[in-house]
Design a protein around this nucleic acid. Structure first.
Lengths: 332, 332
DNA sequence: TTTTATTTTTGGAACGTTCCAATTATTGTG
DNA sequence: CACAATAATTGGAACGTTCCAAAAATAAAA
């Protein structure tokens, strides 16, 4: 056990022949430091092997560059895809993401955030658990935190919200099915507790009502948002309506489950029954039949989030609807 | 914009009628503080709404309760399953996980860790990217960090390692196939750059050589560790050996891909060709046919990690082989 | 009771940074 | 060149906690 002498700004300053204040200015890359001193300091940092101490910085300056990503459920493939993108983009703008998973529970979510407060995180990027109250989020905002909702909307919360254009997505996909001649088209999966369910369902309903007067054609089956949920939902759907022609799924994962069940029943997805997903997971283009779906660009969402992070001072809280694309493949 | 008066230990102390030192003692729940003062302090904390400032604490005490989880690839379902377990268990022992993804790149991994050093993380739980050098890890250890490798082993690194008993796993699964009368059994998926590949392959080889003299029966196909990798690998395997009878897969994901390809080719998995996975992902028991596989208990791994975190002072670096279970279902 | 041992409590220094107000160096102007 | 204006640099205080050594309170022993 050797004694570790920590190298501080003072050591760097001594080596560079400037004051510690100047070193600090360089570290926070202020523009009011001459090129010459900057070079000297940078060189000294290199030579001494100095490591910045964020704890000290954050303590004194009363702000950190820590961003908490509070995700509802890391087990969901789209969530992880989005999380990875978020984490990288946040890192690229000089901040750091600390990631936690609420497991879809409001209690765990609030306990988590309470503990995160001790770390003086400056912003929360949060996909709120079902039942999150606007007051809870507003409380954080009042304490001076920047709060950005992603994927899900909480009505009445004074926070920025970044979500895919869900309504357009299912509107497009349902329209595609209609154009292809399908009539008995069902909406499968998801449930009322999450805002995106309502939006995706709305897109489906809009398209259906626009083309058919007959309300009997629309059919909605709710389910868990898991593969197994999709499988069970598909079973239920086939029992209720054996003559179903196509299915608009709440998500790709739901579609995977539905397809699995179809195959078991010797029903050919894409041939006997058309099917469309939502999310465009990596696997969707590789499976067979390749899944027609709505593509959400997670990098675009991540970029929008970073935009908000960087505009933190502007108090405007806006809502960004990230555009989605219909990706036609062979499942319908 | 109201001015935020931060409540500090001094305020709490004043309210409780004790000194700030006593409050500090309570906060770090030291045992050398009387029950009476402890109650008073706790009450005062409650009343004042005091929030602990970890930055100040960490700055002064020169230790943090931050643990970095450096995961190779969050996109992999087993990784996320494990990560979620780790994050929760770490939280339950009073520490906090900060999660980053190296994307299987040593460069990104080392850049990441360099930045994490600024946050004074006290331990790294790391699933090392392929090609990670022992020296790199040892460097961290020498700087006083606790380093715990999970899932993958780096020979020569003086760190604790917690991995599933890979060899036993594939030994058991291969044996099961042999007992069921299969003979032409292949090993599918994974590649040499990762240590678990060698171990799982060894288990397969052990079992095969134990029962058959004929080396021609063993067959190994490498692939990416993705669903698509499994699909392509299975295709290659069927081309090379159309008379293959069963497949031991490197992972469940590989098995998913292989099964997908079989179904496309009108081959019935579990009937025409037996197949076994490794990991026991959540989906594996729900799919059809339900996948026979080797169960790794992620909570057990997480617990072992926490054990190491808590025994941090003991300098012993040990290797924990977490037991695995053969889960018989209907895919063979 | 006095003395000794043990348990609790305490104020001041310290951790490594940024902020602030003041000082010094540099540039521009007539 | 003198003077003002601006740019760059600086030392000391401050952020909120834990550590430390010493003091005070309590318990045990004589």
């Amino acid at each position: 056990m050797k004694k570790q002498e920590t190298i501080t700004v003072v050591d760097v300053a001594k080596k560079a022949g400037v004051s510690k204040s100047t070193v600090s200015l360089v570290l926070t890359n202020s523009n009011k430091v001459s090129e010459k001193s900057k070079r000297k300091v940078l060189k000294a940092i290199e030579e001494t092997g100095y490591v910045y101490n964020r704890d000290a910085a954050s303590l004194r300056s009363r702000r950190s560059n820590l961003v908490a990503i509070v995700i509802n459920d890391l087990t969901n493939p789209y969530s992880t895809q989005l999380t990875v993108a978020l984490e990288q983009q946040i890192r690229s703008i000089g901040m750091f993401a600390i990631l936690v998973s609420s497991g879809e529970s409001v209690e765990q979510q609030s306990e988590l955030i309470q503990r995160l407060e001790e770390y003086k995180v400056s912003a929360y990027v949060i996909c709120p658990a079902p039942g999150t109250s606007p007051d809870f989020l507003n409380g954080l905002v009042d304490k001076g935190r920047l709060v950005i909702n992603i994927m899900r909307e909480i009505q009445g919360a004074k926070v920025s919200t970044i979500i895919p254009d869900n309504v357009s997505g299912t509107y497009m996909s349902t329209n595609l099915l209609i154009k292809k001649g399908y009539k008995n088209i069902a909406f499968l999966g998801g449930n009322e507790s999450i805002s995106d369910y309502h939006q995706r369902l709305a897109g489906y309903n809009n398209a259906m009502h626009e083309h058919f007067q007959d309300d009997a054609l629309t059919q909605v089956i709710q389910s868990n948002t898991t593969r197994d949920g999709g499988r069970k939902g598909m079973k239920e759907l086939l029992n209720q309506s054996p003559n179903i022609e196509a299915v608009v799924c709440f998500s790709d994962v739901i579609a995977y489950g539905a397809i699995e069940y179809m195959k078991e029943q010797q029903i050919k997805p894409g041939v006997d029954i058309g099917i469309i997903g939502f999310d465009d997971l990596k696997d969707s283009q590789l499976m067979s039949p390749a899944l027609t779906t709505i593509h959400i660009d997670e990098n675009q969402i991540a970029r929008a989030v970073c935009q908000e992070l960087m505009d933190a001072n502007s108090n405007a809280r806006n809502k960004v609807l990230v555009g989605v694309d219909l990706i036609e493949r062979s499942s319908c």
